[in-house]
Structures are given as structure tokens and as C-alpha cells.
């Protein structure tokens, strides 16, 4: 009896240890660093205070980047849901032999590096890019448009990266759904859209909410896409961290920025699971 009580702890010890070393140690290091000082001549000054946080609280550049980061993450999440949920449903309803192929098409981009895909967007969106060339050839007034180094470009690039994640998350809950449910609704007089909205949607909510959270967190902490499509001036929090670490070399300040981003994302995640997800799950009787 007593042996089996400790067995779970003993069995999970290696994983816990690996996670601790790989995740908590670097994070702890960053957290400690964020309390230290910095001088351009002397480098890191060993002292312990909240000076970095205090300066960030009044740094308009940082606050602007923080607001931009969350604005972009929210917009990207909403767009990804609007595209990914219907996409998953449509693929789910396809004949089996098309289904596999379409799923591959959707997930395929995940096999290509984010950097490569973002370069693709740079080629398309540039002042002389394919899109502007096409618009000019069509004689659209106002072309060429400025698209690179805008929030629009960042959102576009992130949506492209994140949509497959929503499709996969929703796909998983669709697979657990009784296929007869939609038919039952239709046999009772619901059109296809109503059947989806009233019966399918509430039952795949767990997948949708999980996908939304995943997209939000990854968008808020994304680095490559915003850095490449946003340029030097349009900064998000993660590209700001990068600058502090590698250009300004003010590691303690960079660490404080990183810690704040982490805390902000953590707060959103907790609020989301507490308020939104738990309510949806309770309705379905799984929470």
C-alpha cells in the first residue's frame, strides 16, 4: 500500500526533473537578473531592487509595445477562429478520401520554417512585391500600398502561421463528436447552418477554446514574424526584449521585459481557463 502511494511520484520524477532543469532554471535565472542594475561602462551591477520595473512602468515605448502585442494577439486569435473553425468543420464533412488530403494541405505549412514563410510574405507585401505589382497592373487607384512594416503585415503573417493550430484543435474535438448529432438536428428541421450553430458548435467548444488560448499565447510571445514584418520601429514586447539583450546589452532590463510579458500571458491564461473555459466545460459535463 505505502509503496504504491509513492510510485506515481517516483515514476514522474525523471520528467519533473527534466522539466525543472530545462524550463525553471533558465526562467529563474531571468527572474533574478531582472532585479539587477546596469551601467553602460561597468555592465551588470549586482544589486537587488525594482528599478527596472519602475522605469518600464513609465516607459511609453514599452507600454505602447505591450498594448500592440496584446492588440495583435487578440485580433490574430479572432481571425484564426473565424477561419479555422469553419475550415475544420468543412473538412470534417468531406468524403473520407478528400478529408486526408485536405488535412495535409492545411497542416502542410507547419512543416516549413516560420522564417521561410515570413520571407514569403515579405516578397508578396513589399512596395514592389507581387501584390502591389498586380494591383498596379489592374490600375487600382492609390497603388502601390504600404503594407510591409505595418500591424496589418504582422497580423497577416501570424494568422498564416496559427490557423493550422486552430484547425487541429477543433479537428480533435470533432473526431470525438457523434456524427449523428448534426443529422439529428437536421431531421428535426434545422438547416445546416443552424445545426452547426446550435448543436455542433457548443459541443466542440472545448477544442475551440483550447485552440484560441494556444493561438493567443503563441501570438503574444511570437518573435520572428513580428520582427521581420514589423521592422525596426514597429516593436512588440518580444522583439523589444531581443533588442535589450543583443543591441543595448542591457540584460537586466531585457529580463524585466521578458518577465512582464510572461506574467501578462499567464494572467490572461488563468483568467481564460477560470472564467470562460470552465463555464463551457461545465455545460458539457466534463468540467
Amino acid at each position: 500500500m505505502s509503496a504504491s502511494r509513492f510510485a506515481p511520484a517516483a515514476l514522474s520524477a525523471p520528467a519533473v526533473l527534466a522539466l525543472g532543469v530545462a524550463l525553471l532554471l533558465p526562467l529563474g535565472g531571468i527572474a533574478l537578473l531582472s532585479f539587477q542594475g546596469f551601467d553602460f561602462d561597468k555592465g551588470i551591477i549586482p544589486r537587488w531592487d525594482l528599478a527596472n520595473y519602475a522605469s518600464l512602468a513609465t516607459d511609453s515605448l514599452f507600454l505602447e509595445a505591450l498594448a500592440r502585442t496584446f492588440r495583435i494577439a487578440v485580433i490574430v486569435t479572432v481571425i484564426c477562429l473565424a477561419i479555422g473553425v469553419p475550415e475544420a468543420w468543412i473538412i470534417h464533412r468531406m468524403a473520407p478520401r478528400w478529408r486526408g488530403l485536405m488535412l495535409l494541405v492545411v497542416v502542410g505549412p507547419l512543416l516549413v520554417s516560420v522564417v521561410v514563410r515570413t520571407f514569403g510574405w515579405m516578397v508578396l507585401l513589399g512596395g514592389n512585391g507581387l501584390i502591389n505589382q498586380g494591383l498596379r497592373a489592374l490600375g487600382v487607384p492609390g497603388a502601390p500600398f504600404r503594407m510591409m512594416f505595418t500591424e496589418f503585415a504582422i497580423i497577416l503573417g501570424l494568422v498564416h502561421v496559427m490557423v493550422p493550430l486552430v484547425v487541429l484543435a477543433v479537428w480533435a474535438s470533432l473526431g470525438r463528436l457523434d456524427p449523428a448529432l448534426a443529422r439529428a438536428a437536421e431531421s428535426l428541421g434545422a438547416g445546416r447552418l443552424t445545426a452547426f450553430r446550435r448543436v455542433v458548435l457548443p459541443n466542440i467548444m472545448p477544442g475551440i477554446l483550447a485552440g484560441a488560448l494556444m493561438v493567443f499565447c503563441l501570438s503574444a510571445s511570437a518573435f520572428a514574424t513580428p520582427a521581420m514584418l514589423g521592422g525596426r520601429r514597429l516593436k512588440v514586447v518580444s522583439s523589444m526584449t531581443y533588442t535589450e539583450f543583443l543591441n543595448t546589452l542591457n540584460w537586466p532590463l531585457g529580463a524585466a521585459i521578458a518577465v512582464l510579458l510572461l506574467l501578462a500571458i499567464l494572467a490572461v491564461t488563468l483568467l481564460w481557463t477560470r472564467l470562460v473555459e470552465r463555464r463551457a466545460l461545465r455545460r458539457l459535463g466534463v468540467g
Binding site: D178, A180, L181, R183, A184, A185, E186, S187, L188, G189, A190, G191, R192, A195, R198, V199, P202, N203, R283, L284, G285
Partner: peptide, 30 residues
């Protein structure tokens, strides 16, 4: 004529009750 317009009642092998609705809501759906 689509299934939703045929006015044919259907009972599935899996019952296909709507899990997020109460019994009364299930019955009221049609």
C-alpha cells in the same frame, strides 16, 4: 427535398441526444 424539410422523425442507434441540452430542451428542439 432536404432532410430538414421532410418532417420525418429519426431515432439513431446512438440516440444522438444533444449533450449540452436538458431532456426538455432536446425534445423542444424540433
Amino acid at each position: 427535398i432536404p432532410a430538414s424539410k421532410r418532417n420525418i422523425g429519426l431515432v439513431f442507434q446512438s440516440y444522438a441526444l444533444f449533450p449540452h441540452m436538458t431532456v426538455a430542451e432536446n425534445v423542444a428542439f424540433g
